[in-house]
Amino acid sequence: MSKPTGLTTASILSISLVGGVSTLITGILPQLEREFATVSTTMVEWLVTAANISALVTLLANPYLTHRWGIKKVVVTGLWLAALTGVIPLFTHVYWLVLLSRLALGLGIGLFSPHAIGLIAHTYHGELRARLLGYQTGLGALGNALFLALAGLVVAFSWRNVFLLYLLLGGVALLASAGLPASEAAVPADQLAVKKLPVSRWLLVALAFVTYLLIWGVQLKLPRLFLDRAFGSAELANWTLSAMNMGGLLAGLTFGRVHRHLHQYTLTLGYAGAALAVVLLLTTANTLVAVGSAVFFNFIYSYTGPYLVYRSQLDLPPAQIDAMSSWLTIATVISAFFAPPVWNFLGALGPGTVTTNVLLWAAGLLGLIAVAVTAFFRHQPQPILERGNSHDH
């Protein structure tokens, strides 16, 4: 698939648009807490992130499934499964049924989400691959923004209507059915073998886990911060989360240009800028400044994701690219599962409320990571492909 058709390209990119659909209910966390008043905060927040841990099951099984049935069938099946199970909470008031439906949603996400990266990584090389991975991140942010913006509209009528938005995945499934090639090469079932990946790549997987754990800490507590400081209603929280993703879209679209100039220090920019944004979010009492800080946080932090993907796949043979893509995806989804207990535990340690303490921890950790990666890169040789000596294919 070195020269994909327009329809095929649209099909691949559409997978990126819906990769983060589990998060579209983030803005209704206060309503979910009222609906399930007898359930702990951590358990309610798990309704947002539970899909990510169940996605781990199908992510691990993905090499076997694609080897057995091909990428197209796996992707389309995953999209339909997510569409149909995502809407179930609209019809029930029972917490455990809602949780089970979210777990089923995750099974679908795990079937299609890793192929958004893998298909690009197989097809392009050098700075062109970096630019397209930036686009992939940007499109993921755009998809999240669109879903959260729609959630901000429908929540005005009823917060339960937010779950109807999962039916839109059916449209993406139809596009994938029409555009993805049926003859996509099968993936060997042993590609996730630990021994095949260098230790340095596992360190990047670990950093990806921490990176996404931090962004979850900010996003999960943002609706509560807005409520506690009277910044606005649930609608404003949803619109802010949507605008944050538009910041991510802008970062994705400009990642290639920034990477050409900063190379490995693109990572420093992302972590340091995010730390400053969280500090501003913590210290302001102004609604517009709070919204702007949240949007800037997501914008600047979104430079880290595509860089971690790009750097992790440099010089890997084709047989290892899918393995690396899968493990990076696994790192991001399990970070979402661990986010509620980790951040609620850390939120109990500090001078302020749980929400304030979480943001303090996030700002401190982001600053430490910025310093650490800068010091590390100063003592490491720059990869050849990052010096601008490679050619786009």
Rank of each mutant, 00 (worst) to 15 (best):
P318N: 11
L328M: 14
L253C: 13
A339W: 00
H261C: 07
A234N: 12
M246R: 05
L314D: 07
A272Y: 12
F226K: 02
H261Q: 12
T287D: 11
I334F: 07
S233W: 00
F255A: 08
A290I: 03
Y310S: 08
L346Q: 05
T284V: 10
L346R: 05
P341W: 04
L241W: 02
Y307C: 00
Q219L: 14
A243Y: 02
L249D: 02
W239D: 03
N238D: 08
Y303L: 11
A285V: 13
S293Y: 00
L207I: 12
Y265F: 13
A275M: 11
Q264V: 15
R257T: 15
L213G: 01
A290D: 10
S302R: 04
Q320V: 02
Q264D: 13
I321W: 00
N344Q: 09
G252D: 06
A323D: 01
V289M: 09
Q320N: 15
W239M: 10
W343G: 12
G292C: 14
H259I: 03
A208T: 14
V295T: 10
L280T: 15
S335E: 07
Y303W: 08
I334P: 00
G270W: 02
L346A: 05
T332K: 05
W327D: 08
Y307E: 12
Y212K: 10
P341F: 04
L262S: 09
V295P: 00
A206N: 11
V210T: 13
W202Y: 15
R224A: 10
L269D: 04
L280D: 01
L250V: 14
L253F: 15
L204G: 02
V309M: 11
L250W: 01
S302Q: 15
A290Q: 01
S325D: 11
L203H: 09
Y301H: 07
A274D: 03
V258K: 04
P317Y: 03
V333F: 12
R260S: 10
R260I: 05
S326D: 13
A331S: 15
F338Q: 06
Y265W: 12
A208Q: 10
R260M: 07
T211N: 13
W216G: 01
L214V: 11
L225D: 03
T240N: 01
V291T: 09
R260E: 05
L276Y: 01
F297A: 04
A230F: 08
D315V: 09
L288R: 07
G292S: 15
A234P: 01
V279G: 03
P306H: 11
Y212S: 04
S233K: 11
V278A: 04
L314V: 14
T254D: 09
V309G: 04
L222P: 00
N238H: 14
F296V: 13
P340V: 11
L316K: 07
G248N: 06
P306Q: 07
I334V: 14
